Simulated assay, not measured.
Amino acid sequence: MSKRTSTAAANGAAAISDASDIKEEPTYDKQKDLLSNEMGHFSLVRAMHLADLITELNGLCGVLSIFSSMRYLIGDPNDHGNIYTALAFLPLGLFFDFFDGKVARWRNKSSMMGQELDSLADLISFGVGPAVVAFAIGIRTPLDHLCLAFFVLCGLTRLARFNVTAQMIPKDSTGKAQYFEGTPIPTSLALDGLMAYWVSNGWIHDAIPGGVWFAGTILEVHPIVVLFMIHGCLMTSKTLHVPKP
């Protein structure tokens, strides 16, 4: 082979290599570009995908649940309408939590913003919302406050860990993660259902199951709040792997 032929072959190989490098560049992210650069009116809204707007409805359900609990606190404690409304908004939030994922896959429009929105909405609907309902029905001593705060912070930590490690969890043939690390935060709806059962039986305020321990002291606490703490520990568990349905 002549020197010229050898040089041409080398140049051709380099061109092919350069072309391969070009193909491997990250794809253009229109949403990220809009969020970073666009300054027009309603630019944030125009940058959001349909799935993102549905995720916002999940967060709305959580906020309305909190407001309903607050309305119960300033109203007649024997009128349970607002507390039932607060409890009902939480599973409605779960509906939107499932639906936004289906829409994102249908439209092939997943994004980092959508992932962050999903976690923040979940924290409101399945972390803060149930804790506020528990407070409203009578789990409200100073030590109860700390226990409920522990539950919410566990949910916050679990969601932050998910956002960081989601890409590292083994995937199945369809690209979905094979399991959850720790129980997903929407499983707090089990506590939601339990509290609805208590309300239906009148087991709230002074009649909360388990009563109150160390009444009148700094250690006054409703032992039933331990259920929230256990759930918080399950959410943050690293060794507990829950298979995805």
Rank of each mutant, 00 (worst) to 15 (best):
Leu146Ile: 14
Phe135Val: 00
Ala136Cys: 13
Ala160Phe: 12
Ala134Arg: 05
Asp144Val: 04
Ile139Thr: 12
Ala149Phe: 02
Ile137Asp: 05
Ile139Cys: 14
Leu153Arg: 11
Ala160Trp: 03
Val152Lys: 06
Pro130Asp: 14
Leu153Lys: 11
Ala166Tyr: 12
Thr165Ile: 15
Val164Ala: 08
Pro130Arg: 07
Asp144Ser: 09
Arg161Trp: 10
Phe151Thr: 07
Pro130Phe: 09
Ala166Glu: 12
Ala166Ser: 15
Thr165Phe: 15
Ala160Gln: 11
Val132Ser: 01
His145Val: 09
Val152Ala: 04
His145Pro: 02
Ala166Cys: 14
Asp144Glu: 11
Ile139Tyr: 07
Phe135Thr: 08
Arg158Glu: 15
Val133Thr: 02
Phe150Ile: 00
Pro130His: 11
Val152Pro: 01
Gly127Glu: 07
Phe150His: 09
Ala131Glu: 02
Val133Asp: 08
Gly155Val: 02
Thr165Pro: 08
Thr157Gly: 08
Leu159Ser: 02
Ala131Gly: 08
Phe126Lys: 02
Asn163His: 13
Arg161Tyr: 12
Pro142Asp: 03
Val152Cys: 10
Arg161Gly: 12
Cys154Ser: 14
Gly138Pro: 05
Leu156Ile: 06
Leu153Met: 13
Pro142Met: 01
Asp144Gln: 10
Arg158Phe: 03
Leu153Val: 13
Leu156Lys: 01
Asn163Phe: 14
Thr157Arg: 10
Ala136Ile: 07
Gly155Glu: 07
Val133Glu: 03
Phe151Pro: 03
Asn163Glu: 14
Phe162Tyr: 12
Phe126His: 00
Gly138Gln: 03
Val132Pro: 05
Asn163Trp: 13
Leu159Lys: 03
Thr157Ile: 07
Val132Gly: 09
Ala166Thr: 14
Arg161His: 14
Ala160Arg: 11
Arg158Thr: 13
Leu146Arg: 12
Val132Cys: 05
Leu156Ser: 04
Ala160Glu: 08
Val164Gln: 04
Leu146Gly: 15
Arg161Asn: 14
Arg140Asn: 15
Ala136Arg: 00
Pro142Ile: 01
Gly155Trp: 05
Ala134Trp: 01
Cys147Gly: 12
Phe126Leu: 02
Gly127Ser: 02
Ile137Gln: 00
Gly138His: 03
Val152Met: 09
Gly138Asn: 08
Thr157Tyr: 10
Asp144Thr: 11
Ile139Pro: 12
Leu148Asn: 01
Val152Gly: 00
Phe135Cys: 09
Val128Ala: 11
Phe162Arg: 02
Thr165Cys: 14
Val133Leu: 02
Cys154Glu: 09
Gly138Ser: 01
Thr141Ile: 04
Arg158Val: 10
Arg161Val: 11
Leu143Thr: 13
Ala131Asn: 09
Gly127Arg: 02
Ile139Asp: 10
Val128Asn: 05
Ala136Gln: 01
Cys154Met: 11
Phe126Trp: 06
Ala166Met: 14
Leu156Ala: 08
Leu159Asn: 03
Ala136Asn: 10
Val133Pro: 03
Arg140Cys: 15
Thr165His: 15
Leu159Ile: 10
Leu148Tyr: 10
Gly127Phe: 01
Gly138Cys: 08
Ile137Leu: 03
Gly138Val: 09
Ala136His: 09
Val133Met: 05
Leu148Trp: 02
Val133Ser: 06
Cys154Gln: 09
Phe151Lys: 07
Gly129Ser: 15
Leu156Val: 06
Phe151Cys: 00
Val133Ala: 00
Val164Cys: 07
Arg140Asp: 15
